[in-house]
């Protein structure tokens, strides 16, 4: 088990990897979302719903949002802290990584610049019958 970092190590601003940004651009440019932030939040939810865990590894992130903007009610923070106790003190660090994993899942399901979110949620529902499962990507 990874050693829990101190709360002071958590982030005030979270970012996105180059590949994650590509998916966000594609979704925004394809008219799927009004704001990239909507896709970013959905990506976090998707990763959590598919049973992904924060990887706790350092990556190359380009700063994108203030945590107060992406999670004004701190709902995501609460969820991450509850589901991933190891990251209870650094939830936004976990969220940043989960967002990237979620964008990875969404990107893989996009075809020709489009995706049907109803189908994505349907897959999430099926994956969660009897407990959280994965998105079928093997990650």
């Amino acid at each position: 088990m990874a050693k829990s970092p101190a709360a002071k190590d958590d982030l005030l601003q979270i970012g996105v990897s180059t590949s994650g940004q590509k998916v966000l651009d594609e979704m925004h440019d394809g008219g799927l979302v009004s704001e990239q932030m909507d896709a970013y939040r959905l990506a976090i939810a998707t990763a959590i719903a598919f049973g992904r865990s924060p990887r706790g590894t350092e990556g190359s992130w380009k700063t994108k949002y203030a945590v107060s903007g992406i999670d004004p009610q701190q709902d995501l923070k609460v969820i991450v802290a509850e589901i991933y106790p190891n990251f209870a003190t650094t939830p936004y660090r976990a969220i940043q990584d989960l967002a990237d994993q979620g964008l990875d899942i969404i990107g893989a399901q996009m075809e020709g610049g489009t995706i049907f979110f109803g189908e994505l949620v349907e897959k999430i529902n099926k994956a969660n019958v009897g407990g959280p499962a994965d998105d079928g990507s093997g990650k």
């Binding site: 704001e35 939810a45 719903a49 959280p132």
Partner: peptide
């Protein structure tokens, strides 16, 4: 339809998380 869909997508993350949260709540 796409305009309405974009509006729906703002809060869709909550519905997407719902089955996992249900599961967590049941575990707790």
């Amino acid at each position: 339809l796409r305009g309405d869909l974009r509006n729906d997508l703002i809060e869709l993350w909550r519905d997407a998380l719902s089955p996992r949260l249900e599961h967590e709540v049941r575990r707790l």
